[in-house]
Structure formats: structure tokens, C-alpha cells
Design a protein around this nucleic acid. Structure first.
Ligand code: MN
Ligand code: MN
Ligand code: MN
Ligand code: MN
Lengths: 218, 218
DNA sequence: CCAAAATTTTAGATTAACCTAAACTTATAA
DNA sequence: TTATAAGTTTAGGTTAATCTAAAATTTTGG
């Protein structure tokens, strides 16, 4: 199997390439893994030796088929554990990411498949992210950023692209949680701030920065 | 915090000293941690520096107060996860130990306390071993080995001192599971084999070796 | 009581994952 | 188009955890 560290690199590459096969740079990997570029280069050679990535010096990396499989499996575990923590243990959606970062490395196929069943085979995690099934298949819904919506448009909040506790708590305070219906009332020309109606009743103003990280289905 | 490896050494020392403060030898630690004596010596120096053990060269080790606390906490996590795996995910009692060996190293106090509540604050794990509460307190019931019982004595199976899958499956096949009532019908003089009545109905013969690893309350 | 056996420690290496500093390659913009 | 900047790799080290072989200490049985 792969080490804890190797798994974290695979996951980082997967997320940076957004599931597609966009080549990922050494520096960007160093940033998300909290390491230095030189350390990343060492690891890339190792992952390439194991046929988990396609690596050409100076040209960035993509995951191979087996690299994608491995990464998706870690993501499956991460998201299922997050569902467990929220649905069964009563954690808030902003508290579960760090614990799931540890749990995602537990190795046991039967464990995760049983957990999946125990949770009722959920299709999305507490942040709206889709959960791959046991064969690794999953569909990413096409979500659009609130910052890309026009005045008068409405939608259902279905995901977030920033998972920090501070951001999620902020959304909660504004009642901007998953499943909430919003309508864009106005877009302020000066700074791009957005005024919206929440659940057809409350009115809220959010900054462009916040709007960029809220994803909706129209 | 302590590394994965340090935690495994602490747990090993705790189990080898049977919870008391019996001094534990380098070789015995090497055996249960699957390492060599030289590696153990290195680690002992490190644990002593951290004030987790009392270590005098050539004289074996005992855990300090904080060492015991750390060890008991790992055991608490191990046993709670085993309960979760059996009660919630439907694993058999012989399948959970290895998975719990990984889960016991997940670090989050709120996680384990919530898990404890979710499970209904169980006092024993699937093998009958007592679960420390969140303050680290727990009582070890006084159990006696079936191999120490005399003809005519009866008792309730309440624990096992061998956790291997092969042994546990064997017990299951004989209906010798936790909570089962047994009565010693006969002890064979030739080899110490024991004939017993299970649940007042079935009759079983077990070897002395098996009898040594079954624990009962009289 | 003491020499041989058993146990434990030390010495010296190895491997994985990381680092800094220097060298090298690629991108960019004047 | 080429010099500088930006990005990446290499060179050379460190630390944690492991090992084998050799040296030191303790235990044991005749
Ligand atoms: Mn997460
Ligand atoms: Mn998530
Ligand atoms: Mn166990
Ligand atoms: Mn157990």
C-alpha cells in the first residue's frame, strides 16, 4: 500500500487538477502539502516510480489511471467519514474536516463499504461534495458560483469551495447553509457585493469573496 | 503529542506489565512490537526523556503516571472503536482487532467522547475487556481461567485472553461466546482436557490450551 | 562463586520524509 | 531576442525509526 504521506500527495494532485488531467506544478503541490518545492520533487520521483503519476521534469504532473483510482478512494473515505461525524456523532459541518483528514488514511475496504451502508449510501458529504461509490464512480453536479449569478436569478445552495471553519461558521450565521434557496436581489457596482433574499424572507449582503465560495444549482 | 510509534510502545509496555507496575524487559517489548531489542533500547531512551517511562539501563521499564494515562487513553480508543465496529457496522468479534489498531491512533478528544456517547457508554468491548471512562478510570473484573476450574463448578464466559481470529472463530464454532453459561462436567486426567456443558444443553470437550484462554465469572 | 549463557546496550548503517542553498530550466517582457 | 525573473531540480544534510554486529552487563547453574 501507499504511505500516509504518499496518499496526501495523491489527493493534493487530484484536487489541484480538479479531477481533470490538468498538469499540476511543483510549487502548487508544495503549497497545499505545507512542504517545500525540493521535497515535492523527491516525492514526485517516488510516485512516478510507482506509476501513480506521469512526471516529466520541469513539466508538471498528472495522475495515471491507478493514481486517480487511489486518490478517489481517499476522497471517498474522507467524505464518508465526514458524513458519519455529522450525521451520527453530531459534529457541526465546520468541525469535521481535520478529523476526516486522519480517518481517510485508515486502510480497510470492508470497513469503508460497511460504513457506506451504515450511513445509507449518501451521495454527498456535509459540504455538498459528491461521494464516489465503491467502484470509484461519481458525478460532479454542475454548480455555479454565487459571484457569477445575475440580478433576479435564484438557486439552491448546494456546495462550498472553501472548507475552513471560519468561513463555514460565517455562512451558518447568515443562514446560508446547504439546501437554502436564494435569489439575487442586487449586485453593487462599487465593489461587487451581492444582496440576496434567503428562503424568500430574510435579506443578506455578502462580499464578492464570500460569493465566490458559495455554489448553487439554478 | 506522541507519534504513532511511541503510542504503540506505551501500549505494549502497559499490556506487558498487566496494568500493574511490573518491570518490563527490553526483549519482551521487542517481541510484541515486532522489532529488535536494539530498536527498543533506542525508543526507551526517547520515552524516558519524555518522562513517559521510568528506565534504568539493564533493569527494565515501568510507565510513569503520565505514561499510564497515555496508554489507558489508547486502550480506551481501541476498545470503543471495536464496539463501534461490531455493534454498528456488523463486524464479527474476530474481525475488528486489526482495524482498531489503526483507529486507536486517531487524535481527537471530542471524537472519542462523542463516540462513547453514541455507543451508549459501553463498559466492555466485544472481547469482554473493560473500557476506561473519559477520565481514565476502569475496573478490571476478577475473572478466572476455565483451566483453573474444578469439576462441578459453573460460570459465565466473560472474557478471552487470546484475541486471534483463529481462536475466536474456534470458540464461536463451539458456542463458547461471551455471556454463555458453562459447567465443568469432567477434567480428563491424561492431558487436562476439559468436558463442559454449555447453556445446560450441549456438551463440549476443549483442550487445556483453549481452556487457559477462556475467562469466566463464577 | 564464577564462567558460560542470556539479555541489553552501543556503534555504525539504512530508509523515508523533510530541509536549505545552489544550480539549472523555462517563461517573460523590454 | 536575450537578460532577468520565476519555477524546478540537485546536492548535501537532518531526524525518526529501524536494522546487524559487537561490546557490556546481568543471570544462572554447576
Ligand atoms: Mn473535508
Ligand atoms: Mn467535505
Ligand atoms: Mn483488540
Ligand atoms: Mn478487544
Amino acid at each position: 500500500m501507499h504511505s500516509f504521506t504518499e496518499e496526501n500527495y495523491l489527493k493534493a494532485i487530484y484536487h489541484l487538477s480538479e479531477g481533470n488531467s490538468v498538469a499540476v506544478s511543483t510549487n502548487s503541490i508544495a503549497e497545499v502539502t505545507n512542504t517545500k518545492a525540493a521535497s515535492v520533487t523527491d516525492m514526485l520521483r517516488k510516485l512516478a516510480d510507482k506509476k501513480l503519476i506521469n512526471y516529466v521534469k520541469y513539466q508538471g504532473v498528472t495522475l495515471t489511471g491507478i493514481g486517480i483510482k487511489a486518490a478517489v478512494n481517499i476522497i471517498r473515505k474522507h467524505r464518508l467519514w465526514e458524513v458519519f461525524l455529522v450525521e451520527k456523532l453530531g459534529f457541526k459541518w465546520d468541525e469535521v474536516h481535520d478529523i476526516a483528514e486522519e480517518l481517510e488514511h485508515i486502510n480497510s475496504i470492508s470497513l469503508i463499504d460497511r460504513l457506506d451502508d451504515f450511513l445509507g449510501n449518501p451521495i454527498a458529504d456535509p459540504h455538498g461534495d459528491p461521494i464516489p461509490d465503491r467502484t470509484g464512480n461519481f458525478k460532479h453536479k454542475t454548480l455555479i458560483k454565487v459571484s457569477d449569478m445575475k440580478q433576479g436569478q435564484g438557486g439552491i445552495i448546494s456546495g462550498v469551495s472553501e472548507h475552513s471553519s471560519i468561513f463555514l461558521k460565517h455562512l451558518e450565521k447568515l443562514s446560508l447553509t446547504l439546501g437554502t434557496k436564494i435569489i439575487i436581489t442586487d449586485v453593487i457596482e462599487f465593489d461587487g457585493s451581492i444582496i440576496l433574499t434567503v428562503d424568500e424572507t430574510k435579506e443578506r449582503t455578502i462580499s464578492r469573496e464570500v460569493a465566490k465560495n458559495i455554489l448553487v444549482i439554478l
